[in-house]
């Protein structure tokens, strides 16, 4: 009798007896839509990146393949370097430092609070996250207005055009305001997973708040922190909303990469070039994601080595 060794965990992996055929059938609709409306246009975009395709004019109808011309152009373009640098600053300050830190602080401070104050703060933070982006952009434009904005009234700085004088600071603060909710939600979920007994033990030994955080909380939520940083970094990296507040200006002082692509592809009509920048952005995203995943795997490997299937 032939002995067949089933691959590790086949049966326990399929507890409902779904089987490959049915699994393929029920995932087919999702995969088909993804193939048609995501993979296909994405690949097309990548292809455009190797042409001189333009929105209007002769090259709109007869795009020519230009090989890697677009890429060498982009990589040598000082505007691109400038924009890339701004994006790095934007991600670093607004997401990694701003959203993640503020989100954690809120989650930590409100962790055993109940009542209206907690509900109010959470509601406002979440509202900032879920309001439509055009509305939110209007709100900020109104608040920052040079003539009658609330901020100038509040700070008694009449006539300050915040969006023009400090464009990067404005979009960084804006993005913190807009996106902190996600980190807050994630960290408050993560904090419920920290065993209270361990915190109590640390307190019993006289650990202060910082020591409790360092020795008990962070080791527990390290995975959540990494997931959070990965997602908010990627989202912020690809975020186009700042355009609605500063339009990348003045003089490109807040022209982060998504805005730069918009200007190149739609404003200047150089679709091919825009597509090439998109690919470069995708590669950067990929590197960011790989770094985080690497860190994540190290964490898991450190505790319990994953058994590898042959």
């Amino acid at each position: 009798m032939a002995r067949t060794a089933s691959p590790r965990g086949t049966d326990t992996e399929d507890p409902a007896g779904l089987g490959r055929a049915r699994a393929a059938a029920i995932s087919a609709p999702a995969l088909l839509i993804i193939a048609a409306f995501l993979v296909f246009p994405a690949l097309w975009t990548l292809y455009l990146g190797t042409t001189d395709y333009r929105l209007t004019g002769f090259a709109a109808r007869h795009p020519r393949g230009v090989g890697l011309q677009n890429y060498t152009n982009v990589i040598q373009d000082p505007d691109f370097h400038h924009s890339l640098w701004l994006t790095v600053e934007y991600v670093l300050f607004s997401a990694v430092l701003g959203q993640a830190l503020l989100g954690f602080v809120i989650a930590w401070m409100l962790r055993d609070t109940r009542g209206w104050l907690k509900r109010l703060i959470e509601a406002l933070v979440l509202l900032a996250w879920i309001l439509p982006s055009s509305v939110v952009a209007f709100l900020w434009v109104a608040m920052l207005d040079r003539g009658s904005g609330t901020l100038n009234a509040l700070l008694n700085t009449p006539g300050t055009a915040w969006a023009i004088e400090h464009p990067m600071a404005v979009i960084v603060v804006f993005n913190i305001w807009r996106g902190t909710a996600f980190s807050m939600l994630l960290y408050s979920a993560a904090l419920t997973g920290v065993p209270p007994s361990q915190l109590a033990t640390a307190r019993m030994f006289g650990a202060n708040s910082w020591q409790q955080l360092r020795d008990v909380v962070f080791p527990h939520i390290r995975g959540h922190i990494l997931t959070n940083l990965l997602l908010i970094s990627l989202w912020t990296f690809n975020d186009f909303t700042p355009y609605q507040i500063t339009a990348g200006g003045p003089d490109g002082k807040s022209e982060i990469l998504p805005v730069y692509i918009y200007q190149t592809a739609l404003f200047d009509g150089q679709m091919g070039l825009g597509a090439a920048i998109s690919l470069l952005m995708l590669l950067i995203n990929l590197v960011v994601a790989l770094v985080y995943l690497r860190l994540l795997r190290e964490r898991r490997g450190g505790r319990k080595p994953e058994r590898v299937a042959p």
């Binding site: 060794a5 590790r8 058994r307 042959p310």
Partner: peptide, 10 residues
């Protein structure tokens, strides 16, 4: 009867 179950492993 002669029931055998092998799990493939690393």
């Amino acid at each position: 009867a002669d029931l055998t179950k092998t799990f493939a492993d690393a």
